[in-house]
Design a binder for these strands. Structure first.
Length: 457
DNA sequence: TTTTGAGTTGTTCGA
DNA sequence: GTCGAACAACTCAAA
């Protein structure tokens, strides 16, 4: 036997971790060096909020490893082979990454490893079913969710990996390996993040499961806060989706959760087969779509108002302010705010997607960007172009008592009932400090339809 | 190969 | 206030 190296990436946990099992089995008692590399290419698109959440997850992981996590800052293609050399590891074990950057990076790491007579061993992935596995009979990937979901269900999902009783972690310092340590939290300006790490994820899962029967009916009501809130843990692998699926049971709510996890797998699969789709329109049909409002100044003003939650449409502003305050936004409201940016402010989906990726602690390239493409009508299996959310109607449908809006917009906290969704109609005028609507929805809707019409010709 | 039915999340308008 | 139709056309998946 020989020491091995476990390179953590999006799998910051110790239970249900197939790659850890593989590293442990190969090493025997010769020890496993656990490593995380802070790579600037991945830190770039994340803002301070998401980085703070990541650092906290790393601290939690380090704690469950008795302080033996080795954290290095730099380029994995250099650092990982170097570390493997230093402990003379026979293999480097990873959970496979299927993203466009991750795949390329892993190949760059693999070359020098193999040249030095070591192996890069991929075991497991961050998904219930790995991208590329679910295909049509002719081997082509699915481009529509529902048939994908049927095939995903037929394919089945493995049971969680068995637990690892004890891992003989090699601490970095005793063997003379340098560790840069986990950076301190960047300034997150008062944002309240969820508790980080595997134990917090497990607790969140148990709390959520206790009320999962009501999920299907309540998850769309942002005032109820009935979504799972598991996304940040799934993003960094504090929880594996299989762990969730295994404990769901079979209520109607559980079925809905299952299909949400399948959506996550579906979008990862779409990105796997279309590596450019995180940045460019997936379908050509709307490629000629005109965005913008005639002047850069107006565009910038609109974008600024949107990001700060000052558009004058309460449900939109509440969502954008929740994002600033929590590094997270309710799913229903993500759709409403996205639709507003694209179809009322006529700004390209990429701008909104970038803002979300910076600010969401669960910010995930495939789910986020394909969600935006769905709204823009450019994605695989996208919304029809005429499906334009009416922010007032969405507000009174999904936040009927206005509790969500009042929670996030103090200027409107004194307004009772549904009328909080239309402050411009209040008899006493718009409450002090809250803005006038920056655009007229009915007019912008017509404008959007005209732009789509023009693009289709 | 051809055909057929269907497709996450909506809105508006007119009866 | 409620209801159904119209909003288009295309691509996908499966029989």
């Amino acid at each position: 036997m020989a020491p091995t190296l476990l390179w953590f990436r999006r799998d910051l946990r110790l239970t249900d971790h197939p790659a850890l099992l593989a590293a442990r089995d190969e090493a025997g008692d010769d020890g496993v060096l656990g490593v995380f590399v802070l790579d600037d290419t991945l830190r770039g698109p994340a803002g301070p909020v998401r980085l703070a959440f990541l650092y906290r997850c790393l601290r939690a992981l380090d704690e469950t490893m008795d302080g033996k996590l080795c954290v290095r800052v730099g380029d994995p293609a250099e650092l990982v082979p170097q570390l493997a050399e230093q402990v003379d590891a026979s293999s480097v074990h990873i959970s496979a990454d299927y993203g466009p950057y991750g795949r390329e990076r892993d190949e760059k790491v693999e070359q020098p490893l193999v040249a030095a007579g070591r192996r890069l061993v991929r075991t497991g992935s961050p998904y219930a079913v790995a991208p590329g596995r679910i295909t049509k009979d002719d081997g082509a990937p699915y481009r529509v969710y529902t048939p994908f979901y049927r095939a995903w269900t037929d394919h089945g999902v493995r049971r969680p990996a068995q637990g690892v009783r004890s891992v003989p972690w090699i601490g970095a310092d005793p063997v003379g390996i340098k560790t840069d340590g986990i950076p301190g939290d960047p300034d997150i300006d008062g944002t309240t993040l969820p508790e980080a790490g595997e134990k917090a994820g497990q607790r969140r899962l148990q709390d959520f499961l206790a009320g999962v029967q009501g999920y299907a009916d309540n998850r769309d009501l942002p005032g109820r806060d009935a979504t799972s809130r598991l996304s940040p843990y799934l993003k960094y692998g504090c929880l594996h989706p299989r762990t969730v699926l295994d404990q769901l049971g079979s209520s109607k709510g559980a079925e809905t959760v299952r299909s949400e996890i399948a959506w996550r797998d579906f979008y990862a699969d779409v990105l796997f087969h279309n590596p450019g789709s995180a940045r460019w329109d997936l379908t050509e049909a709307l490629a000629g779509m005109q965005y913008g409002n005639g002047s850069t100044e107006t565009d910038e003003q609109f974008f600024e108002a949107w990001t700060q939650g000052r558009t004058g449409y309460p449900i939109v502003d509440a969502g954008m302010r929740q994002l600033l305050a929590e590094g997270w936004m309710h799913n229903r409201v993500r759709m409403i705010t996205a639709s507003f940016l694209i179809k009322d402010l006529h700004l390209p989906w990429q701008r909104g997607a970038r803002w979300f990726l910076q600010r969401l602690c669960d910010g995930d390239l495939s789910s986020n960007n394909h969600g935006w493409q769905w709204t823009a009508g450019t994605g695989t299996d996208a919304a029809p172009y005429f499906r334009i959310f009416n922010p007032t109607l969405q507000g009174s449908k999904f936040d009927p008592d206005g509790s969500y809006v009042r929670r996030w917009i103090p200027e409107l906290s004194g307004v009772e009932g549904k009328s909080v969704h239309e402050p411009w109609k209040l008899r006493g005028g718009i409450p002090e400090g809250y803005p006038q609507p920056i655009v007229d929805h009915a007019a912008e809707r017509k404008d959007s339809l005209a732009r789509y019409e023009a693009a289709r010709r």
